[in-house]
């Protein structure tokens, strides 16, 4: 049995994750959720005291028009999840039920709704902020958290299809957003060290689709647009990216017409925390019983 399925099996046996029959789609126990909630409080405690981000919580679905405008399908068509519904008449309904009863493909007649599953917590944010007009003089800072969907079924518990991402997003001049990213790269490492996990910072690239994606990924690495904090989860040799620090340059600014107070195209950056991945890393490192975790880790999380 490989390491990945063994951690997953241990989590399922311990009742921390609950099997639904679909790889990457799990229920979470109270103990698991408690760690997530405590870790989120620790994120708050490590954030700059004077930053005062605007807190927004979007549901895990976004406006399809905004999704289309974001260019997500150019880069990650393989990961997107769209919401479809039955939009037929009574006769269609009868045919649908018959199709289900016969084990046929009843989803063929489903029509796309105006909702797409959120692929990253910050995607719904940019068009909403752009609609408000130019950013205030100091730029913008936002605190987000959302369940996100990525279609990549896997036995690796660190690669869930539905998972939560906490994010801080900075919008403003190139200097403002780069300073934000540098600052969080340091804060992120301190935060992870505070809960007794080993960290390694490395440049990274997003899983862009196809050969064109290979080029996008290489370009992203060469320009150091993405850094990740790697932490052992299922293996200490192949670490898992648990935090990422992304500089989007003017990509979202240009896409959504987002401007600074003086009318220049805004640059954006974000820091993202993979909440399930961090929680899994904690269980993998410190054991499946939180009561038995090291005293300093318990103190950092539970006070």
């Amino acid at each position: 049995m490989d390491m990945q399925s063994s951690l997953l099996d241990r989590l399922l046996d311990a009742g921390l994750l609950i099997d639904t029959g679909i790889d990457g789609l799990y229920g979470r126990s109270g103990a698991f959720e408690d760690v997530i909630a405590r870790f989120e409080k620790l994120i708050d405690a490590h954030a700059p005291a004077d930053a005062r981000p605007e807190v927004i919580r979007f549901p895990p679905g976004m406006n399809r028009k905004h999704f289309e405008g974001s260019g997500y399908m150019k880069s990650f068509p393989q990961l997107a999840g769209t919401v479809h519904s039955f939009c037929g008449c009574e006769l269609d309904h009868m045919n649908l039920l018959q199709c289900i009863a016969e084990g046929g493909d009843w989803t063929e007649g489903q029509k796309a709704t105006d909702v797409v599953l959120t692929p990253a917590a910050c995607y719904p944010l940019y068009p909403v902020v752009a609609k408000r007009g130019p950013l205030p003089a100091g730029g913008g800072l936002f605190d987000l958290q959302s369940y996100c969907f990525r279609h990549e079924p896997s036995k690796d518990p660190a690669r869930m299809q539905l998972f939560r991402m906490r994010e801080f997003v900075r919008m403003g001049t190139p200097d403002q957003v780069m300073e934000f990213r540098e600052d969080w790269m340091e804060r992120g490492q301190k935060l992870i060290s505070a809960v007794g996990l080993d960290v390694e910072l490395d440049t990274a690239n997003d899983p862009f689709f196809g050969r064109a994606g290979k080029m996008m990924g290489n370009s992203q690495r060469e320009q150091k647009l993405k850094f990740e904090l790697l932490i052992p989860v299922t293996s200490s040799a192949n670490k898992t990216a648990c935090l990422s620090f992304n500089y989007h340059q003017d990509h979202f600014g240009t896409t959504w017409g987002l401007t600074t107070a003086d009318g220049a195209t805004a640059h954006t950056a974000c820091v993202g925390f993979g909440l399930e991945r961090i929680t899994l890393a904690l269980f993998a490192r410190h054991g499946l019983e939180t009561a038995d975790w090291p005293a300093d880790v318990r103190k950092a999380l539970w006070g």
């Binding site: 260019g71 150019k74 064109a212 080029m215 996008m216 370009s219 992203q220």
Partner: peptide
């Protein structure tokens, strides 16, 4: 841009 360079490549 990165996107344009990909289109150029294709």
């Amino acid at each position: 841009s990165s996107f344009a360079s990909v289109q150029l490549m294709l």
